[in-house]
Design a binder for these strands. Structure first.
Lengths: 306, 306
DNA sequence: GACGCCGATAGGAAAATCTTATGAAAGATC
DNA sequence: GATCTTTCATAAGATTTTCCTATCGGCGTC
């Protein structure tokens, strides 16, 4: 047996409104027989007579009235559905769930939010700060639209657009400001403060200091760069921070900054999203915008010295 | 361009629930390609991507989620619509809009309502009292399902089933109880009280008294039989009332009842409905029931005397 | 790099829908 | 009261939509 279709509802609605097969058919821009058969179909489907065919005019039965009312409500809902989806589909970017690793978020998120709000008025921004692995998972599962993190990402199925490349700088107690700049080997002999397991920045710093995977002696962990810097200023040890963190983190701490000799440790920050993302092209734009902001901020913040 | 169809909603709902084209297709008992193309159609119709096809699994876009929610609501409404109509279609008679002329209504309506309620449990009864012309109009326009009135009805397109035939009796002041029973000619010389224009009973009475259409002298009008009888008891004149009205109207009035000589005036009460009425067969039953009641009541009420 | 899973695409078949032509019933008209 | 008109139903053929089978291509896995 056939199913109830949208057509049935639409045609019946027209018939209910006009009370006349011919005019209803005209309203639907189909022929009168077409409408007649559809109405007949409908009555068969429901197993009840909905229209009373008097020679004079077509009138609805009580059941027909009931049907017409409900049908109209459904048609309204369908119309609204179409409108809503069409309208929402228009605006390029309605919502952006953007993940950012913890060693980037504090230094760019505010500016980023402002810029995105300006570029996409009315956008619903949902930033989320998490470590790389969690970001990648969320990305894969569709809980994030894009993420800003350190490249490379191993995952195929993701697109990555590099944004900036930045150096790590050495942060040591203010008292050691005029000590000589150590190299990687020298660093290994110092008390190095690092982020907890899971942070990509920790791995990158370690990779520089201890390429052989041997964890350096005297390794102390902190939960944020801010914590690490505070510990440094207390004379507990030294640490590495990314360039972008310097202005914020060393503003009020009594520490010395030393730029390491080339080739020093670096990281490349990029934005990634699913290749299959429906808003891939918009994300391309977003990435460009983010790149601009990041470059402007890092250049501006870097002292003219060195 | 094609239109949004019920199919689209159903298929998309399945896809949303399973997150998997193959399983969704199976759920809909169609092949996977069929579902794929329908979903693609849907996306084209709406001009937006609703599903994100990652190699791994199919995920809904935010727009897709919105769509799925609304689609589900619509499908629920459609399902309810079908159920309601199917169920209501089962019960033979859900509602009966029954018109009755004023010279019948007071004497039968209560019994009739009771009997119909008993015969059709849960029925919604809507009796309406009005003069013949109005009843016929309402019947034609579908505002009434059936009407009880005096036959014949000129209208083709209506079916009429005779129920009872009853005589008119003369009502005169109690003081005249032993006056001789007048014939039609004699009636014309008396002060005759009649219903207002429009009542079929008025015309029938007039037709008996004054076949030549000449209105008798001294004609006085009242708005109901009850009023007329009260006026008679006050000695203002005489009137005719149908047999069925006698028990009720003369119960507490000081009036005399005289049965006229045969062939006296009579009227035939019947029930009519549209030939095209969808509940024509039920109305046939209703008419039979009404006939039974009327006959029982009129016979029982008639004194054994003649 | 072969295999398996998943969804897209192609081509032809089946079904639903539409149109034109025609029929039948009931009012309307003369 | 016979004819004309209106109105809806039915019939037959054309068109469109929908579906199925077969096959491809991407992607992840072993």
């Amino acid at each position: 047996m056939k199913d109830l279709s949208m057509r049935h509802l639409r045609y019946f609605d027209a018939l209910a409104r006009h009370g006349h097969f011919g005019r209803a058919a005209e309203d639907c821009t189909i022929s009168q027989p077409a409408l007649s058969t559809q109405i007949k179909d409908l009555e068969e489907i429901l197993g009840s007579q909905l229209v009373e065919r008097g020679g004079r005019q077509a009138r609805l039965t009580p059941l027909g009235e009931e049907f017409a009312g409900r049908a109209r409500a459904i048609l309204r809902a369908v119309d609204e559905l179409e409108t809503v989806i069409r309208v929402q589909g228009q605006q390029a970017l309605g919502r952006l769930r953007l993940g950012i690793i913890p060693t980037v978020a504090p230094y760019f998120l505010p500016d980023l939010m402002t810029a995105l709000q300006g570029r996409y008025p009315g956008i619903e921004l949902r930033p989320r700060e998490a470590i790389t692995q969690k970001l990648l998972d969320d990305l894969q599962e569709g809980r994030l639209d894009a993420a800003i993190l350190a490249l490379p990402v191993p995952d195929p199925g993701l697109v990555a657009l590099p944004l900036i490349e930045e150096e790590f700088v050495l942060v040591r107690p203010a008292a050691e400001a005029d000590h000589p700049v150590p190299n990687a080997e020298g660093l290994r002999t110092m008390r190095l403060l690092l982020l907890e397991e899971g942070h990509c920045f920790r791995e990158q710093a370690l990779a520089f200091c201890a390429p052989s995977m041997a964890a350096p002696r005297d390794l102390i962990e902190g939960s944020s760069l801010s914590t690490l810097v505070q510990m440094v200023s207390a004379g507990i040890g030294v640490t590495l921070v990314p360039d972008m963190a310097v202005p914020v983190e060393t503003r009020s701490a009594r520490v010395a900054i030393q730029r390491l000799a080339s080739p020093g440790p670096t990281r490349r920050i990029g934005m990634v999203w699913r290749k299959s993302s429906p808003i891939a092209s918009e994300l391309q734009d977003v990435a460009a915008l983010v790149g601009e902001i990041m470059r402007a901020r890092t250049i501006a913040s870097q002292p003219p010295t060195s």
